[in-house]
Simulated scan of single mutants.
Amino acid sequence: MPGLVRGVARTAVVAGTATAVSGRVQRRQAERFAGRDAQIAAERQQAYEQQAYQQAPPPPPPQAPGPDLVQQLKDLAALRDQGVLTEEEFAQQKARILQA
C-alpha cells in the first residue's frame, strides 16, 4: 500500500506542476498576443482613417448669398416700379426670397 500511495502522490505532484506551468505559459502568451493585437488594431484603424480621409469629397465652396439675393430684390423692386407687380405680390415674393 505505501508504494501505491507514493505513486499516486508523485502523479499528483507532476500533474499539479504541469498544470501550473501550463497556466503560466498561457497567461504570458495571452499578454504578448494582446499587445500585438492592440498594435495591429491601431494600425488598421489609422489606415482606415487615412483611406476615408483621402476618399472623402472636398466640401463645396461656400456661396456668397449677398449679391445674388440683393440682385433678386432689386429686380423685384424694378418689376414693382414698372407696374408689373402689385404691392401685395411684391411683398409675397420678397418674403419668399428672404426665407430661402
Rank of each mutant, 00 (worst) to 15 (best):
G3R: 15
V5K: 12
V5Q: 12
R6D: 08
G7P: 02
G7V: 12
A9H: 13
A9P: 09
R10T: 00
R10G: 06
A12K: 09
V13Q: 06
V14W: 10
V14H: 00
V14D: 07
A15M: 06
A15K: 03
G16S: 10
T17A: 15
T17S: 03
A18K: 04
T19V: 11
T19Y: 01
T19L: 13
A20R: 06
A20Q: 01
V21Y: 01
S22Q: 02
S22V: 05
G23V: 01
R24Y: 03
Q26I: 02
Q26C: 00
R27M: 00
R27I: 08
Q29E: 12
A34M: 01
A34I: 05
G35D: 07
G35M: 09
G35W: 10
G35K: 02
G35P: 07
Q39W: 14
I40A: 11
I40L: 14
A41R: 14
A42H: 15
R44Q: 12
R44T: 09
R44K: 13
A47S: 14
Q50D: 15
Q51F: 12
A52W: 00
Y53N: 13
Q54L: 12
Q55V: 06
A56Y: 04
P57V: 06
P59M: 04
P60W: 06
P61G: 05
Q63K: 03
Q63E: 11
Q63M: 01
P67C: 11
L69M: 11
V70D: 11
Q72C: 02
Q72A: 05
L73Q: 02
L73G: 08
L73I: 08
K74Q: 12
D75G: 08
L76Q: 07
A77Q: 08
A77V: 00
A78I: 00
A78Q: 10
A78W: 10
A78S: 03
L79M: 05
D81P: 06
Q82D: 01
V84L: 08
V84R: 00
L85E: 06
L85W: 05
E87H: 08
E89N: 02
E89G: 02
E89W: 09
F90W: 02
A91C: 04
A91H: 00
A91S: 09
A91G: 10
Q92D: 13
Q93T: 05
K94M: 01
K94I: 06
K94F: 06
A95L: 07
I97F: 08
I97T: 02
L98F: 03
L98T: 00
Q99S: 08
